[in-house]
Computed example of a mutant assay.
Amino acid sequence: MNTQGSYRCYCDPGYYLMTDGSTCTKEPECSSARCQFGCQIDRWGEVRCLCATGLHLAADNRTCEDVDECRGASDVCPPRRTCKNTFGSFLCVCREGFVLGTLQDSVQCRDKDECLDSTHLCSRHSQCFNTSGSYTCQCLEDYSGDGHTCWPRRASQSKTSMYLQYKLSKRTRPIQQPRRPQL
Score class of each variant (00 low, 15 high):
M1V: 10
M1C: 12
T3L: 11
G5W: 06
S6H: 09
R8Y: 09
Y10I: 15
Y10A: 13
C11L: 10
D12A: 14
P13V: 10
G14I: 09
G14V: 10
Y16C: 01
L17N: 07
L17I: 15
M18R: 13
S22I: 15
A33G: 03
Q36D: 14
G38M: 03
I41L: 07
D42T: 12
W44E: 09
E46V: 07
R48E: 11
C49Q: 01
C51N: 04
A52F: 05
H56S: 11
H56I: 06
H56V: 06
A58C: 03
D60N: 15
T63E: 07
E65G: 06
C70M: 05
R71D: 13
S74A: 13
S74C: 08
V76M: 10
R81N: 08
K84L: 13
K84D: 06
T86V: 11
T86I: 11
V93A: 09
V93S: 07
C94W: 02
R95P: 00
T102H: 05
L103R: 06
L103F: 06
Q108E: 09
D111G: 05
K112I: 01
H120C: 00
R124V: 03
R124I: 02
Q127A: 06
Q127P: 00
T131A: 06
T131P: 01
T131F: 01
Y135W: 02
C139E: 02
E141V: 03
D142C: 01
D146C: 11
D146W: 03
D146R: 06
H148P: 04
T149C: 04
P152Q: 14
R153F: 02
Q157Y: 12
S161K: 13
L164I: 15
L164M: 13
L168C: 14
L168D: 11
L168Q: 13
T172M: 12
I175P: 05
Q176C: 07
Q176H: 10
Q182A: 03
